[in-house]
Nucleic acid binder design. Structure first.
Lengths: 213, 213
DNA sequence: CATTGTGAACTCATTCACAGCG
DNA sequence: CGCTGTGAATGAGTTCACAATG
């Protein structure tokens, strides 16, 4: 696994894509796949696939291609998704509940282990899945036993920064932020944003400029 | 509004960010803002802000900065979010319901006007918001009256491509895809993907490589 | 005179093209 | 022979640095 060369962020995004296509290929009974085919499935350039993989090693067989199962495992190792991860979530509104119930997360090794809110009406309630919603004030105390790896923010925008601060204070330095707010964190902390409205804005921009509605 | 120069996709993403920060600045009572301040709020480089805006015109006053209200309106015009947009959604599971109930969308001019599913148990049911879930087979027929601008996919991965095909067949060529599936569409159709698991994979990659968990 | 607007320099990412090899 | 792996070429995007200016 190379460490010397700088790896583009987009490479990581694509590795995640490759991984999913490899799962589908395995499911469909394929043993081998070429960079050309994998590229087509992911809608990227074949050289891109090879270069992306090249950052991390040599996984292919020249003249043949890649072993689907093996490459899949290698990619999962690179992305560190060959293990279980523990997540805590703050903000149990519509979206929070939807994520807690979403079967994709546990299926891929991402488990919610605690749910928090600041609304007294919600605190103490039990969700369908056996989760009791806890007071967000307990976050730091609770996280001592919980071994949370990742904090998920599904609060309204106004509460996002305070929630991020709590996570960091609790020693959690990886955050998945679903709120449409820019959160500011110390540089040792990692944040990924999932912002619906930005994507909608891009769509409307393109609708106007590329299609002309 | 320039059309000659090629505008980076990332510029559009940032314009959406600027727009939101401008709303907050206006709310906080600011009349003017400098590229330096706006940049800090959005965590980008000040020259980036000026260059991004520069693609579309000259909106600032040298030596002073930008008028918050005016710039906000200009950016909204560029992004085409100075109007209402009509969305249809297919796949009324946990996530679909959460989106239908989400107040951020209507607040920003994005309205769900129809909801579809393929599950006979769901079809015909009325959601809290007065929506009746319709049979996805009716999508094409229904869309004749509905004037849908954007199709939202919240089906499981397995159904995403079929749903995209339906949207396209119904004449809708802007899709917001929440499923973790790569969908293939003709090039006149625009797709934006919102893929939770990719973001999680990026987080875990960075946790392993930058933090070393 | 502080801040914008922008060409030029630079950095980063993608694609090409072909040598290397199973 | 065909496909991988990769240096070299190209292309895209960001940052610098400073002239322009309200």
């Amino acid at each position: 696994m190379e460490r010397t060369e700088k790896i583009p962020k987009a490479t990581i995004t694509r590795l995640s894509l490759y991984c999913r296509q490899l799962e589908l290929l395995e499911f469909d009974g394929y043993r081998m796949v070429s960079s050309e085919k994998l590229a087509r499935l992911c809608q990227v350039n074949p050289a891109q696939v090879r270069k992306d993989l090249g950052y991390f090693g040599e996984f292919g067989i020249r003249g043949v291609g890649y072993e689907v199962k093996e490459l899949q495992e290698e990619v999962k190792k690179i992305l560190a998704i060959n293990r279980e991860w523990r997540m805590g979530i703050v903000g149990i509104g519509n979206l929070g509940v939807a994520l807690l119930r979403h079967e994709n997360f546990p299926a891929r090794g991402f488990h919610f282990i605690a749910a928090f809110d600041s609304d007294p009406d919600k605190i103490g309630r039990t969700l369908r899945l056996g989760f009791v919603i806890r007071d967000v004030n307990e976050l730091k105390e609770a996280s001592k036993d919980l071994e949370m790896d990742i904090g998920v923010i599904t609060t309204p925008a106004a509460g996002a920064q305070a929630t991020a601060d709590r996570f960091i204070d609790a020693g959690i330095n990886a955050i998945l932020n679903f709120s449409p707010a820019q959160i500011h964190v110390p540089e040792y902390c990692i944040v990924e944003n999932i912002d619906f409205t930005i994507k909608l804005d891009i769509l409307t921009y393109k609708l106007k400029n590329e299609i002309g509605i």
